[in-house]
Design a protein around this nucleic acid. Structure first.
Lengths: 162, 162
DNA sequence: TATTGTTATACTCTATAACTATA
DNA sequence: TATAGTTATAGAGTATAACAATA
């Protein structure tokens, strides 16, 4: 495997070629072995509520990068399945707070572990140097995208101000 | 940014944390700036037919990692939008061959370019070493997943044989 | 007026199952 | 019998638009 991508354009081409199949694989494996009936967005929403108990719907939407309405629908399904609970916010009556139910907490832990094992199994033959390269690469990538997103949001806010 | 992931489990955790947001970002940007109305699976199917003119539906399904029925539906939509064309296979009458229409070819080129530019813009502040690390990391990751998938398919075939 | 959230509508993705036609 | 493909069905993701309630 030889890769040479020293310009943003070249690197972008490689990223666009490699990320979608990997993502699809993760999603498929998760559904099949990890958490049947738990989709990737649901999984991520659950994880977010786990890390931020009492989070608002807007916070979830922000984290997932989706609209409020989409987040509302996803939350709906998680509530219907008994995995999270809505509750009124103590002071701000527009808001709701989201928390995991015991069932949601358990399912999340199981799903997390099962999926991680599946992904780890895919990486089993690699050397620790290769694993390190992967971890550094995807982290750099993620950071770059987060940074760019943040700039865009600042721009958007500037637009509003202007 | 400090990452240490020298075991498959650690690396898997990093991958699961970083890939979904990146994927979502690519998808969103593509829809917004690159090819409005062209979804990621449609985009990938189009790209595959471009690289393999006359490909069968099974080949598309294989490449996308989806079932035949899903591939059939996706092809349906691309045909309906005038981006690809179905034609009978010359010798095997069960098969169909898929080719890009001129409109499909044009749209693909435009979408590819626009999306690559958007992704490249995200990576703009990085050094060439960092870009190289990203490219190597995601390529390693993709190869590992492809390799694991191939093994699984061999197993599946063995199952059939046994 | 701006923000939080819900709901309706209308797409797409996706798998499973049942089916036809061909090899 | 096995393979290529279609179609129906059903559930999930997703955005836009219209709406209610609150700040």
């Amino acid at each position: 495997m030889v890769v040479s991508a020293r310009t943003p354009e070249q690197c972008a081409a490689v990223v666009m070629e490699t990320i979608p199949p990997v993502m699809r694989f993760i999603r498929t494996e998760m559904r099949r072995h990890g958490a049947p009936g738990l989709s990737m967005p649901q999984f991520r929403a659950l994880g977010f509520v786990d890390r931020c108990p009492g989070a608002s719907l807007s916070a979830v939407a922000d984290h997932l990068g989706v609209t409020l309405s989409t987040a509302s629908v996803i939350a709906d399904r998680l509530v219907r399945h008994g995995l999270i609970a809505r509750a009124p916010h103590p002071t701000e009556r527009r808001r709701i707070t989201l928390t995991l139910t015991p069932a949601g907490s358990l399912l999340l832990q199981q799903a997390r572990q099962a999926t991680r094992s599946k992904v780890a199994a895919m990486l089993d033959g690699l050397s620790s140097e290769q694993l390190q390269t992967i971890a550094e690469g995807v982290t750099l990538l993620n950071d770059a995208f987060r940074g760019a997103l943040a700039s865009k949001k600042r721009e958007a806010n500037d637009d509003v101000v202007e």
